[in-house]
C-alpha cells in the first residue's frame, strides 16, 4: 500500500495513545513462550486491558490458558487491528482470511482464547466461522466434522426425526467445502 505520511500536519495526537503505541508488554503463554506486543494492540483484549489498568502486569503478563501457537495467532490479529491507517475494509478482509485458513482444532483453540481474553471482534469472527461449517449440513456431516459421537439408538433418532420432520430435508450433500 502506498500510504505514507498519513498523519496530517497539525492533527492533535493524544499523548496517552502515543505512549501506548511505544510501550510494549510481554505476554507469556501456558508453555512458557514469551511474546512482546505494543500496549495499544494488547489492550484490544479487555482482559489484558483490565490487568494493565490494575497494574498487576508487572512487566510480564502470564496467560496460563493460552498455548504459544494460539497466542501467536491472537497477537497477529491484535497487531492488525491496532495498526495505524488500516481501513475498516482492510480489517474486514484480513478477518475473513484469518479465520478461513484455520483448521477445526485451531478454531476451537482460538475461540476459547478469544473468550478468555475477551476480544469481541475475534470471538465474533470465529463463532461465525464455526457456524458456517454447520450451515445447511446434514446431521451426519456435522457429527463427522466436529467429531460428535451419537449416543442415540436408531429408534430414538427415528422418533426425533418425526417430531421435527420439516428440519431434515433439503440439506447440502455431504461434501467437504
Amino acid at each position: 500500500m502506498a500510504r505514507k505520511n498519513r498523519n496530517p500536519v497539525g492533527k492533535n495526537v493524544d499523548p496517552e495513545a502515543q505512549k501506548k503505541k511505544t510501550r510494549t508488554l510481554t505476554l507469556k503463554s501456558s508453555d512458557g513462550q514469551e511474546f512482546s506486543i505494543s500496549e495499544s494492540a494488547a489492550v484490544l483484549s479487555i482482559a489484558i486491558e483490565n490487568m494493565v489498568e490494575d497494574d498487576c502486569a508487572g512487566g510480564v503478563i502470564p496467560l496460563p490458558l493460552v498455548d504459544g501457537g494460539t497466542l501467536a495467532r491472537v497477537i497477529t490479529y491484535l497487531n492488525k487491528h491496532a495498526e495505524d491507517g488500516a481501513s475498516d475494509e482492510e480489517k474486514r478482509k484480513f478477518d475473513e482470511e484469518f479465520v478461513s485458513g484455520m483448521e477445526m482444532g485451531v478454531l476451537f483453540d482460538v475461540v476459547l482464547a478469544a473468550n478468555y481474553l475477551d476480544i469481541r471482534g475475534l470471538l465474533r469472527e470465529v463463532r461465525r466461522r464455526i457456524a458456517d461449517r454447520m450451515k445447511n449440513k446434514s446431521v451426519e456431516w456435522v457429527r463427522k466434522t466436529f467429531h460428535i459421537e451419537s449416543d442415540f439408538t436408531p429408534e430414538e433418532e427415528e422418533q426425533m426425526k418425526k417430531e421435527f420432520a420439516w428440519a431434515w430435508e433439503g440439506v447440502d450433500s455431504d461434501v467437504d467445502d
Partner: peptide, 13 residues
C-alpha cells in the same frame, strides 16, 4: 445459523 439448522442440532447427541 438459520432456525432449521439450529433445530437439527437436537439430534447430534
Amino acid at each position: 445459523l438459520p432456525l432449521r439448522d439450529v433445530v437439527r442440532t437436537s439430534i447430534l447427541s
